[in-house]
């Protein structure tokens, strides 16, 4: 029974990891920017939601909407004012990584200073567990997480496949030069990628604030997981990132069966490490060793 419980918890966590990782993967695929500050986006939206909903007691749809707006603005501003200038002078991986990483460091400490470094969580009836079978506890958030993840993923696939902006996004990942030839502005398309990718962290951020809680350092953790899921899933493959996110979530929880909770992060790393050494291209990706 414990095993089933852990698998269910794993799927709940994994669905949210997958969603965050898909956002990261979308940005990386379209713009080739390794967006280390994606974890910061997650932390920002989670704390905006927490502050509005749990402190100011705003009605929850408005709180979520506000979190969406803030995180999209953050993503787009980063693209415009940090990555854009860096790319126009020196587009090497290293400068972009350092810039992105610097932003992540600043945001983490800003949140720590404003909201404190302790654990906080948003109280909600949705995270109260119900005993489904003897010894098996499931909270409504588990169902919500899975349903939201599936809905978001399907919606994203439809968007990328059917709409003009979606097709432009996929074109940008294939060839920025061709995007320009067709009269589209690659910068505008890249802004869309950042807006969409950042938006995808909101459901995960809101649900995480209700279930496992938040602290100032959560951005770093989310970043590690998104990066790991993107690499394990295969860079450029959204499906891969979603599956890998799920895998990491389940693996992390299954580890609790035998190990202390402190080691669950180590499991994520071991999977990432094994993939980097044995299969750097991930599940579905192409080999990128350059």
């Amino acid at each position: 029974m414990l095993l089933i419980q852990l698998i269910i918890n794993g799927i709940q966590v994994g669905a949210l990891y997958g969603l965050t990782a898909v956002g990261f993967s979308l940005i990386f695929g379209a713009t080739k920017i390794f967006h280390f500050a994606h974890g910061a986006s997650f932390a920002i939206s989670a704390y905006v939601f927490y502050y509005l909903y749990a402190v100011l007691l705003v009605w929850w749809p408005i709180a979520i909407l506000a979190a969406c707006i803030v995180v999209v603005l953050f993503g787009v501003a980063l693209d415009r004012y940090v990555y854009g200038p860096i790319q126009s002078t020196d587009g090497s991986f290293f400068t972009i990584f350092v810039g992105s990483f610097g932003v992540a460091v600043v945001i983490q400490n800003l949140i720590g200073t404003v909201f404190g470094r302790g654990f906080i969580s948003v109280p909600s009836v949705l995270s109260r567990s119900v005993e489904l079978l003897p010894g098996l506890y499931v909270a409504p958030t588990a169902g919500i997480a899975v349903v939201t993840a599936v809905v978001c993923f399907v919606a994203l696939q439809l968007f990328l496949g059917r709409t003009n902006i979606g097709i432009a996004l996929r074109a940008l990942s294939e060839s920025p030069a061709l995007v320009r030839t067709f009269g589209l502005n690659p910068k505008a398309v890249s802004t869309c990628a950042f807006a969409l990718g950042s938006l995808l962290v909101v459901p995960a951020a809101v649900l995480t604030s209700m279930t496992s809680g938040l602290n100032a350092a959560i951005g770093g953790r989310v970043m590690l997981i998104s990066v790991a899921a993107t690499i394990v899933g295969g860079v450029g493959s959204l499906r891969g990132a979603a599956c890998a996110g799920l895998l990491l979530g389940v693996a992390e929880n299954l580890a609790l069966w035998r190990f202390d909770p402190q080691w669950s992060e180590a499991v994520t790393f071991l999977i990432l490490f094994a993939f980097i050494v044995l299969r750097p291209s991930g599940f579905f990706g192409r080999v990128v060793t350059s």
Partner: peptide, 10 residues
């Protein structure tokens, strides 16, 4: 095995 961002992640 890998370079750049991948290695940073590892």
């Amino acid at each position: 095995r890998v370079r750049g961002d991948y290695f940073v992640a590892a």
